[in-house]
Design a protein around this nucleic acid. Structure first.
Lengths: 419, 419
DNA sequence: GGTCTTAAATCACGCCCTAAATTAACCCAT
DNA sequence: ATGGGTTAATTTAGGGCGTGATTTAAGACC
């Protein structure tokens, strides 16, 4: 029950580099003078640490601030080009690869569609390899400049000492897929390059927390509402975040059969796939041969038609019921985690949100305990459906910061703390 | 998103004191020589740190070990009398106060029964004050020697800057009770004495983790199954533990009304109170005028009578169904947290456990996702129904260790990280 | 008693952070 | 333009810390 904490005086320096980098990153250009109270360090140490970071090329000057008598403060910022990250979103219908600079500015993106139910591992690994090669070629960035590759996937990600990240995606038929070692052997990238493979909801969560509607909160639950539903709990420290197999919480003992095999999972009532299934069962007729997104749009239009037209009672009923199930599912998270905010993202969530959010809020409040329910806000995410890649790219970046901006000395150990 | 990590070189020393203390505490008497690799420190530093701890009276020599040539190793241990803790269990039917020495050896205990439904705050605070005075008097220990008072309560514990710990116990009618400030003003203890108020399930969890069936696991979920049900997630670091309002997860949308007001909570199907209610509804006749514990024993006897007698089908049915709901409820925790172990404690759990555990395991496996379900074990706790006080006493002890064995410099901040 | 073995203490060294003292950079009034 | 006034950044003691090598302590064995 010990766990080494930072043994030598050198670790102090690493921690202080991290603190300076983070402050500079989030609170914009800043002078050394402001940095001191912000990080809790003395002016002397700030000078010292900043000099080191500038020498390393991680921090650069960014002009000075007007002074009315007295030496002007010189502003500092993290150098955007001192490192790059790749973010990959292995989604339900496509694999998207994006390349970012340190400030999470998108430099290139590429997307490869997946065939329906086409969760073939080989194909996806191929897509990722090709995608990475493409964005690197497009921007003329050498792999050596990369801080790492972040990948968001559906399902549970476990870590083994031998194979690294292993994906257990029960709903997509992935059983113990050693994605990390597959990527390592397939992509022609430097051997030391770290891969960060994590649940897609969790990467989305980081993105919302750093740049979206979660910014400023001490913690939040971010829901990825797409074909199925997932969620994650995020806090200000990236390492603390936890992905939650929310979709497979039991909301109705002996209820509907879920695609995971169990009875009464939330996923069987609330994901886009489940909604369309239920609509069909109730006599609804989604358009044939289109993708889920189009079908869901049609369902929404049927339930809430334009002025004058009649609403489809089946669609309306299914959506209303889904709101109740979502509310009940959220109440579980509210009771367990007492988050400040709940943010709903994912293409289906963003599409349905404006319609069903009030009902979801109502049901969540009625199913949850009063104290935590009073303190939580439930809203849509602020980043659009493409944020999973951003979140994936945050993983290597956060690790880079945690290492004090030193490449190579990575501690993946931090991430192994599940549960 | 920074958070200071340990700014000055002095924090290093504190961390190393913590490491040495913890190793010595858990891995028994140990020589300086063994301590070095165990803590990752050099021999020189061990000598140095140990000398300091001995000077502080926290560590003492404990004999030497035989040598076959060479200087014999002198063993060291944490001095049991260098500090004491009080653990309080505010339970459903009584308030229990116990006094422990540093090794969690019980020095004195006292118990005060509560009247049925008697959750009057004043009364309970009085019981705690009297109980503390009693155990201190009995052992002649002055309050100055206390490291702190730990209190396990039902419900959610929040922390406010002004009032300290505030308890929201919806099922016992406590709405924002500022228990910490009430205790501070009521008990005549030193002003600086820290109080650690936490959910009872969480304190039980720590006890199981340190001394019970959770020992050695990286993490575990501990269930407190009494009149109602609660749970907590515990890890090796005390600060990381989290209490979970498990009893109010929704396991059946639009299901039975729970005493918290919502529909379909697990608590409405699985706590001892709910079991007895349901038995009554199905025509069972629990003994009148007895306490819940006796009634539950009767129910169990009715469902599983001695050889030859006929089983009460109603009782049997209710218990069987409860096993399914418990299994489903556990599956939620399995999916969310992927714990290594689940331990069921609390008086009702320990009583019912031997009968229903196999069914609970079966249902949990069928409702949970395959990967985490394969990795979890579900067992009874190892500590008996009285462990809540032990766990409560662990809270000040863990804090003392985290502060490197220095009184006064407490950082309650660590505990404020909810969610 | 001398030698070997092993544990613990001591010491020189390099590093780190703080606080105080300097130096740098700029404004303004004379 | 020049010297005082201000404020920012750097430099300089001063005190701590952990490491790794070296010494000292303590016992066993011959």
């Amino acid at each position: 029950m010990a766990g080494r904490n930072g043994r030598t005086v050198r670790d102090l320096r690493r921690g202080n580099r991290t603190a300076v980098l983070q402050r500079l990153y989030f609170d914009g250009p800043m002078s050394r003078f402001e940095l001191a109270p912000a990080t809790g360090l003395s002016g002397g140490s700030i000078s010292n640490v900043v000099a080191e970071l500038v020498a390393d090329g991680l921090v650069e000057e960014a002009g000075t601030v007007e002074s009315d008598g007295g030496r002007p403060r010189t502003l500092l910022r993290v150098a955007p080009a001192s490192g790059h990250m790749i973010g990959v979103d292995v989604g339900e219908t496509r694999v998207r690869v994006e390349l970012f600079d340190l400030t999470l500015t998108e430099l290139a993106r590429t997307e490869r569609p997946l065939e329906r139910q086409g969760y073939d591992v080989e194909v996806i690994v191929g897509h990722i390899r090709d995608g990475i090669a493409e964005v690197l070629a497009e921007t003329d960035i050498t792999p050596e400049r990369l801080l790492g590759v972040g990948v968001g996937v559906p399902g549970i990600v476990a870590r083994t000492p031998e194979q690294g990240a292993v994906v257990h995606g029960q709903t997509i038929g992935w059983d113990a897929v050693p994605l990390e070692s597959l990527l390592r052997s397939t992509c022609e990238l430097p051997e030391t390059l770290p891969y960060f493979i994590d649940n897609g909801a969790r990467t989305l969560g980081h993105a919302e927390m750093w740049f979206g509607a979660g910014h400023g909160a001490a913690n939040a639950v971010v829901v990825l509402f797409g074909s199925g539903v997932g969620a994650c709990l995020v806090t200000q420290e990236v390492e603390q975040g936890r992905s939650l197999e929310w979709g497979h919480l039991t909301v109705r003992v002996r209820g509907r059969r879920c695609r995971c095999g169990a009875l009464g999972c939330l996923d069987a009532y609330a994901g886009a796939e489940a909604l369309l299934d239920r609509w069909r069962e109730e006599g609804g007729r989604p358009p044939q041969g289109t993708d889920e997104e189009t079908a869901l749009t049609a369902m929404l239009a049927a339930a809430y038609p334009a002025e004058g037209a009649d609403a489809d009672p089946a669609a309306l009923n299914v959506l209303e019921e889904a709101a109740e199930y979502l509310g009940a599912g959220l109440s579980d998270l509210i009771n367990l985690f007492q988050p400040e905010r709940i943010l709903i993202g994912g293409w289906a969530g963003l599409q349905l949100g404006p319609r069903i959010l009030p009902a979801v809020r109502r049901y969540a409040a009625s199913y949850a305990l009063r104290h935590p329910a009073e303190r939580v806000s439930i809203d849509l995410g602020g980043l659009g459906p493409d944020a999973v890649t951003v979140g994936a790219a945050i993983l290597p970046l956060a690790d880079f910061f945690a290492a004090g901006g030193q490449r190579g000395t990575r501690g993946r150990a931090r991430h192994d703390r599940r549960a």
